[in-house]
């Protein structure tokens, strides 16, 4: 079983639910680590349905957004599905300003997202 330092990973049916351990996805090293752990879920562990639950996240920078964009490309390349949920209003605004709310499938909460896979 892979070790995830920045992520809390659980299974709900065939969906892998990912929660972030850090409240602020900001630091360069944290973002690198986090990105790699997310990519491993797809590339090493072959998980195809990913739900990222942002409930614990209070802050994220454009560099973190870049990692999410790369993750989305990798999921697509592996013919998988990626959904995001539980994003607080300030952070949703970051997605909306950069129009990434159109790139990502963002759901209100985990139940909504799980039902949409």
């Amino acid at each position: 079983m892979a070790v995830h330092r920045s992520l809390q990973v659980t299974e709900v049916g065939d969906v892998t639910v990912v929660r972030f351990v850090d409240r602020k996805i900001l630091d360069e090293v944290t973002i690198q680590e986090l990105g790699q752990e997310l990519f491993n879920l797809i590339e090493e562990e072959n998980r195809s349905k990913l739900l990222l639950n942002f409930s614990a996240v209070e802050f994220l920078s454009s560099h973190a957004l870049g990692k999410l964009i790369t993750l989305e490309k990798k999921v697509k390349a592996h013919k998988g599905k990626l959904k995001l949920s539980n994003i607080r209003p300030e952070i949703y605004e970051v997605f909306a300003i950069t129009k990434l709310n159109k790139l990502f499938d963002i759901k209100e909460d985990e139940a909504d997202a799980l039902a949409a896979f």
């Binding site: 920078s61 870049g66 964009i69 159109k102």
Partner: peptide, 8 residues
């Protein structure tokens, strides 16, 4: 949209 540019 998928390029890492100008977002900051």
């Amino acid at each position: 949209l998928e390029r890492p540019c100008g977002r900051g």
